[in-house]
Simulated scan of single mutants.
Amino acid sequence: MTIVAEAMPSSLAAQARESRVRRFALTDTLFRNSTRGAAILVLLILGGVGFSLVVGSWEALSKFGFSFLTTESWNPVTEKFGALAPIYGTVVTAAIAILIAVPIGIGIAVFLTELCPRPLQRPIGIAVELLAGIPSIIYGIWGLFVFAPFLQTTLQPFIINVFHGVPGLNSLFAGPPYGIGMLTSALILAIMVLPFITSITKDVFDTVPAVLKESAYGIGCTTWEVTRRVVIPYTRIGIMGGVMLGLGRALGETMAVTFVIGNAHRISASLFAPGTTISATIANEFTEADGTLYTSSLVALGLILFILTFFILAIARFMLLRLERRAGA
């Protein structure tokens, strides 16, 4: 009887352990399948978007062919459409915005992590993050009614006078100072992507081990040398990720660009001249598109932006992979 009594509790304990193991296995299986399903859902959504864009743009692509990418003309009356001007405006404005925002964003991140007095770090950091939360239409309204008139009366006339007669630069900064135009749009985009680049760069700078920076300071390095030779090399992968996030925002921005770029379907060498982007063209004309070919051409612009963004992000991912391998080596 004693042996039977002792065997019963141990048998119950074994059954309880087996029940817990089965429950944990079931929970783990459900978790694994749900995460796999979420990943597959993302791929299905991405594929569905791409398929819908291809189907919607097929009429325009089949009619114009490769000339759709090389033609500047955009005439809904004669149904002659070309995507060269929007593509040019998208690439140029995004490139200028990144060239301006990256050094400023990295500089702000260095100041916040290395030079800023501690009582000011949190207020400045919160202010930078609040810039990222401002709606794009607010940037557009501010750019149209405040920033563009300021550029028209001050900066643009000054730049035109400075570079007048300088070969190459005189055509890059030529023409009447409209206020709106490619350069204004690029500056607005730079302001919009600056908080993203700054916040991510600051966060990755904070991950640098203090012992590395203290060792560099201990052997007599200046703040510039510590930043250049320790902080940035240690965090270059994260910095590149922040830059790519800002570039993706700049490529797809719509409302702010629509307000200040001028919405002119032409390519000009001058950055002061009005232009257009893919997203601005779609936003301006989609509700007024009359006819299937017109609508299909606008959808084709969306497909081009989709492919352009995909390839740029793919190239960025490839660069990050090479940096990781080099760091591992």
Rank of each mutant, 00 (worst) to 15 (best):
G179D: 01
A300L: 06
N33I: 13
G165A: 02
P135E: 12
R118Q: 11
A60V: 02
I239E: 05
P9R: 10
V49E: 07
M182S: 10
Y294A: 08
L46D: 01
S185F: 03
Y217M: 10
G246E: 11
T276H: 02
T235H: 05
I200Y: 02
D203G: 03
Y294H: 14
P103T: 11
D28C: 14
F31I: 15
Y294T: 04
P149Y: 02
R118K: 14
D206C: 11
L112N: 03
S62N: 13
T154V: 12
L303P: 07
I219G: 03
A13F: 07
L69D: 03
L69V: 06
Y178R: 15
L169D: 10
F306K: 07
E129F: 03
V110A: 15
T70R: 07
S171W: 11
E79K: 08
A316Q: 09
S34R: 15
T295W: 07
I188D: 09
A210G: 09
L155W: 07
T295Q: 14
T71K: 09
L155M: 09
F173G: 00
G133Q: 07
L41Q: 10
E214A: 00
V226S: 04
G242E: 08
G50D: 10
L151P: 01
T222I: 09
F311K: 08
N33K: 15
A85T: 07
